[in-house]
Design a protein around this nucleic acid. Sequence first.
DNA 1: CCTTCCTGGTTTATCGTTAATCCGGCACGA
DNA 2: TCGTGCCGGATTAACGATAAACCAGGAAGG
Lengths: 337, 337
Amino acid sequence: MVTMSDVAREAGVSMMTVSNVLTGRKRVGEPTRDRVLAAVESLGYEVNLTARHLRAGRTDTVALIVPSFHDYFGEVADRIAPLIEAGGRHLVLERTSADARSEMESLSVPRLQMYDGVFLSVAGLGRDEIDRVPTSAPIVLLGEREMPGRFDHVRLANGEGARLATAHMLERGSRRVLALGGAVGSSAGMESDRRAGWAEAHRAAGLVPDDRLVVPLPDFTSEAAHQALGQVLDDGPAFDGIFAVNDTVAFGALAALAERGVRVPDEVQLAGFDNLDVSRFVPPGITSVDPGYDVVAATAVRLLEQRMAGSDAPREHVTTPVSLVERGSTRADVGPG
Amino acid sequence: MVTMSDVAREAGVSMMTVSNVLTGRKRVGEPTRDRVLAAVESLGYEVNLTARHLRAGRTDTVALIVPSFHDYFGEVADRIAPLIEAGGRHLVLERTSADARSEMESLSVPRLQMYDGVFLSVAGLGRDEIDRVPTSAPIVLLGEREMPGRFDHVRLANGEGARLATAHMLERGSRRVLALGGAVGSSAGMESDRRAGWAEAHRAAGLVPDDRLVVPLPDFTSEAAHQALGQVLDDGPAFDGIFAVNDTVAFGALAALAERGVRVPDEVQLAGFDNLDVSRFVPPGITSVDPGYDVVAATAVRLLEQRMAGSDAPREHVTTPVSLVERGSTRADVGPG
DNA sequence: CCTTCCTGGTTTATCGTTAATCCGGCACGA
DNA sequence: TCGTGCCGGATTAACGATAAACCAGGAAGG
């Protein structure tokens, strides 16, 4: 590896002069600069960023650490990246998950400290892991869990989104809306928020939420939803609407319905959450709660940059608004039933 | 920031002893170890990875640098991550793209050298950028471009996949299969490979490929496909099958067909490429070419680890096999027409 | 009793870069 | 003529960790 001192020797100057030429932080005479540049060129020198980072005490890099790059977080990442770049920093992504050991690993404090700032999704994390993370580092939590106040936190208006979607289907004639992927217990997660919204919409419509309409899922995949809904269709309670906890789950539901010839939205209305790009195109178009990705991204970046700038203002917990995008999977008008 | 020397002072030992306790690389007496650990605990010391990396000359980190985290690369990333972790290293993702400046940025040699190894997708890159990358670093290219032999390279059997899908539809009664997202010119990219396979299937079936059936797209998004296919349906050549350059494009096509009441697969068969998870669930199930993600990932990781181990064996260019997954969007039997 | 070896630890030097300081000259104003 | 400044550049000293060499003291062996 060719280092700065090689260049310095080749050009007959000191290392500092090479550094100054390359960073432009101090004035260097024309002829000297030329000799340095020539040496750089001929030796093929490239600065060693690790060394620079050590010296500088920062990495100019921000990490987004999420359980999966798909769907929701993929969309968020796409929005955050340009904002971070605009701030002169660099964004990298890491996954939690894989196995438990490597989850600890990527959340280890030393690793977090390699970054000037971190967006951390707490979706799949235990409370213990989070409690081990020191408050000192600039960290913004993304996610739906109720979290200790120690960190800035951006979350969606999950309850409101679920309420919007469910109310919409109730308005359009549904009477028994399944909550697909709802949590039956009272765990403090995204799914319980969404379930609360589902229940609230029922009550607002003068209906009593029926717990048998809450269908839990082992995970929020299409496959799990496909299986579970198949079961319900075969020998579960009757229903005429589905609020899926997210769009991926909605696709699984769509497949189960199609297999049994159940027409959407005529017999069953369907709404999801996340408003994925593909949801717009999958016939008949999946009605979905839009998380307002741009706002989520902008808010998260604002909080993080504030923290990276050294602010010790009180932590903020921001809930960003959501909206309902109506498509063909729910009825445009109140149906006959 | 609390450093190792703080710990050493607190414990009344030398820095090396602290280091040895923490890394376990040398034996340390029981009472000394206890004092060190106590000091670590009380000061909240955490090792500085940047410094360790500088000293060690490696980062134990591998990067996957791709144009987007969606779809194909999202799937690949999911498969590569555990394999890299299993090798005791850490995987991070970066995006090329954003703007041109930051594209250069993330591909700059200094940045690449921060990683022990790099998977690089050349999808959106100019030849110039690639030529600037030195061969010395362990780099495995992922992608469909014809690339200089300087790098290890994993690519899909694109032509074969397109041929499989097209032949399948021709067998099942289609006579005029659209190539949606094919390149009309002879640019050396994935789309031209796929188009070649499309043409070959036609010839093998005794048909003359009709260039008017090749529909170029500005980009491979659902929206672009939706627009373009709408145009074709309104006043383009007649067709009874669609080979979409990827599944995302296929979704756009599906929407355009549905809007006009064209039945799939009865009137038009549809096949895509990538076999995304969702393609299995979107009614009627999208027939798709499966890229064999596991093989792609395993091959790429094998090549990179070889290179990281210092091998200077000749570069390998591996083409991994694909397979066709038949679903409801193509006909199970030859139809009446 | 002296050499040899081991144990548990310290000292020294270095990874590659850069902030801060220092220094020799030359120009310029008083 | 002598400060006073400035300019271009060199020296010094870190950033935080660790490999390698070194060393004190006791045990073992002859």
